[in-house]
């Protein structure tokens, strides 16, 4: 089966061609936009999506060495996301499916991330424990199959990736927060400052807002207001290392709880924050400790991308699901495959 995937839920426009288990093309606007547009950085808007979607589809098909006639199905992100952005990719996909009489699959963006580990050569096995961490999401869940997902917990305030960005800004490390904190942390002492880990009512929920505030409190009491004078580099490195350690510990603590409580066959770390080396290392170690297979997708499948959307569409078709062209995109598009909660 050959599936065309289209994603435009937020900043990125992305188009992919997936043939069975093989990604033939996975173009992402922020990385591949220069191909035809001379290196202009895309802006965060529906207009930017509109400007590049046609080109991206053409280029993806060309790269996959495939024509529209050879496509069996089209999957597009229906939400959650910004409605203006979503509608561009989704309406384009729906129109194409209607005109070319293709199977059409509305895909939940989060489900795309959840199963992105299946784009790796070594596939996850069910029941699969998934930690999904990005700028916008922090989720822990168990997929029992492609159509049964149990949500264990999520962040009650800031996402993990957001905490990295905001703490980096707060201490003067700048943007993008993830890589900057990671680089500084490598030179610092992670045991220097015992930042707290939130204890929450929901056993599997996360909170990073309190951690952000305690970094602010630490910085303010140790160095005065952060905007007044730069923090000495050695201290900055210790703060970055201690903060990163606290985030990783908070995430892994809930994973370990889940490994103890539920029957799990394999574990997967997905989403943009999966790029963090400290988190990857800790996640792999946890898998080793509990003798579970660990799958972390390649970096290009960690951020927002259409390959994961195409795969999700394919997995739903293979599961015997079918969808109406009438389904609308929706900012809070929920998932019917979550068996214990709405998403």
């Amino acid at each position: 089966m050959t599936v065309l995937g289209i994603e435009s839920s937020c900043d990125e426009t992305s188009v992919a061609v997936l043939k069975d288990d093989l990604v033939l093309a996975n173009l992402i606007s922020s990385q591949d936009f220069h191909i035809n547009f001379g290196g202009v950085v895309p802006e965060l808007s529906s207009r930017a999506h509109i400007q590049i979607i046609t080109t991206l589809v053409k280029n993806a098909l060309a790269k996959a060495n495939c024509t529209l006639d050879e496509i069996d199905a089209i999957g597009a992100t229906a939400g959650p996301g910004l409605i203006g952005a979503l509608l561009v990719g989704y309406t384009f996909a729906r129109g194409l499916a209607f005109a070319k009489k293709k199977k059409f699959v509305p895909v939940n963006h989060i489900e795309g991330h959840i199963f992105s580990g299946f784009l790796s050569e070594d596939k996850p096995t069910f029941p699969l424990l998934v930690l999904a961490v990005s700028g916008g999401h922090t989720l822990l869940l168990i997929a029992k199959s492609f159509t049964e997902i149990i949500k264990l917990g999520s962040t009650i305030d800031d996402a993990a990736g957001e905490a990295f960005d905001k703490v980096a800004k707060m201490v003067g490390l700048g943007y993008p927060g993830g890589p900057k904190i990671q680089a500084a942390a490598e030179k610092g002492d992670k045991m220097k400052i015992p930042f707290p880990i939130a204890d929450l009512k929901g056993k599997y929920d996360f909170s990073f807002s309190g951690l952000k505030t305690s970094v602010l409190r630490y910085v303010q009491s140790a160095f005065g207001r952060p905007q007044n004078s730069p923090i000495p580099e050695a201290d900055l490195n210790d703060i970055a290392a201690s903060f990163q350690y606290a985030v990783v510990k908070a995430l892994l603590k809930k994973c370990e709880l889940a490994l103890k409580e539920f029957e799990i066959s394999s574990m997967s770390l997905v989403g943009g924050v999966a790029a963090n080396q400290e988190l990857r290392k800790a996640f792999l170690q946890l898998g080793e400790k509990y003798k579970k297979k660990v799958v972390i997708p390649k970096l290009e499948y960690c951020g927002d991308n259409a390959a994961m959307i195409a795969f999700r569409a394919q997995s739903l078709i293979n599961a015997g699901e079918s969808f109406s062209l009438e389904t609308d995109a929706f900012p809070n598009f929920s998932s019917k495959y979550f068996i214990n909660s709405t998403l």
Binding site: C10, G81, L82, G135, T155, D157, D158, A159, S209
Partner: peptide, 10 residues
């Protein structure tokens, strides 16, 4: 929750 990344939560 925080809409920083999503820009808008409904």
């Amino acid at each position: 929750n925080s809409p920083t990344f999503a820009l808008l939560n409904v």
